[in-house]
Amino acid sequence: MARRPADSPALFDLPDAPNDALERRLRRAGLKRIAGVDEAGRGPLAGPVVAAAVILDPKRVPPGLDDSKKLDRPAREKLFEAIMATSVVAVAAGSVTRIDQTDIRQATLWAMRQAVASLAHDADHALIDGIDVPPGLCCRGEAVVKGDARSVSIAAASIVAKVTRDRMMIRAAGRFPAYGFDRHMGYGTPFHMEALASHGATPLHRSSFAPIRALLSSVAPAAIEVELDLLAAVPA
């Protein structure tokens, strides 16, 4: 399916918090199950990209939903539990292997498509954060620019994706304690870059990303730890 961005207001016209205007428009058109879709982890140097799809119950929308980037960790965790208790949710992770074999955009679209397809109840329509509708989506799809600031469903998906990925990276910190994955979640912070310079790359690092590719070209293979068993929570 081709790109189909929804009409996007100017940034200064965006509401202070997401609302259900897009969902109500779709329900008036006879579409009952509206899935919000968002991702977390496109920019880090390590770890998977995680996508979530969430069908909210219109009668039990958790209060306080917002773009996950605007919320602190306790607020995200609390809303995550509320979303999981009241909504239909599915998550998919594009692994580091998939990212390196294709690219981050393709891995993200794959994860979004898998998340929607994995919902326990089929969605009638998907509201997808960004400018792309994943090809091969199992339902009608609509790209919504700045969707996590506009749609409560997309905001909910952003929270689920972020909390899920953070938990994966906290687990990764236990496997690779020298890298501080629980501090930066794989982003290229000064601490992370210093750890890479000192210890080399792990199997969780994205070798297709320029900083890691440059590191791998300058570090002897024997200095790079290779483990077959990475994270049980991250599908290949």
Rank of each mutant, 00 (worst) to 15 (best):
A111L: 00
E227Q: 12
A220G: 13
V226Q: 15
L231H: 00
T189Q: 05
A126D: 02
L22K: 03
L31E: 06
L137G: 05
G130A: 06
I224T: 14
A195H: 02
R42F: 11
M84L: 11
Y187S: 02
L71S: 05
Q106I: 14
A161T: 14
R3F: 09
V144C: 08
P235H: 11
H184R: 08
A107F: 06
A93D: 00
R42K: 12
I154N: 10
D148A: 14
P74E: 13
A223K: 13
A223F: 04
V54Q: 03
S153I: 14
T164L: 13
C139H: 09
N19E: 11
S198W: 02
R113K: 12
A143S: 14
A75G: 01
T164S: 15
E225G: 07
S68Q: 11
L45I: 10
P5N: 02
A172F: 09
E23Q: 08
I104D: 01
R171N: 11
S8Q: 12
A172N: 09
A123Q: 07
L26G: 03
V144I: 14
D122T: 02
H199E: 01
M84W: 10
A6L: 07
P211D: 08
A220M: 06
A233N: 09
A93W: 03
R4A: 12
A214N: 11
V152C: 09
A123N: 00
T202H: 02
A195Y: 13
L216S: 03
I131G: 10
I154Q: 13
S151E: 10
K146C: 08
D20C: 11
P203Y: 08
R167G: 07
Q101R: 15
A29C: 11
A17R: 15
R140T: 07
G200H: 10
V234F: 06
S151M: 11
K162T: 01
H184M: 14
D129A: 01
L127Y: 05
R25P: 01
Q114C: 12
M185C: 03
I131H: 15
A157F: 11
D67H: 10
Q106E: 12
G147F: 15
I55S: 08
L26N: 01
R24P: 01
R183V: 15
P235I: 11
S8F: 00
A51L: 06
D72V: 00
F80P: 01
M185R: 07
A2V: 08
L45Q: 03
V133Q: 05
R25D: 15
D100W: 04
R167N: 12
G36R: 06
L119C: 05
A53F: 12
A107Q: 07
A222Y: 08
D20G: 13
T189Y: 01
A149V: 02
V163F: 14
R165G: 09
L14C: 09
D100V: 04
S8Y: 00
A2C: 05
A161F: 07
F80L: 07
A232W: 14
L196P: 03
A223I: 00
G200W: 08
A172Y: 07
S218Y: 01
G141Y: 08
D38I: 12
P190K: 15
L109W: 07
P235Q: 12
E225R: 12
L196A: 02
A210W: 07
A51H: 10
A35H: 01
P135C: 02
A117H: 00
S95G: 06
A90K: 03
E77H: 02
R175I: 14
S198G: 06
D7T: 08
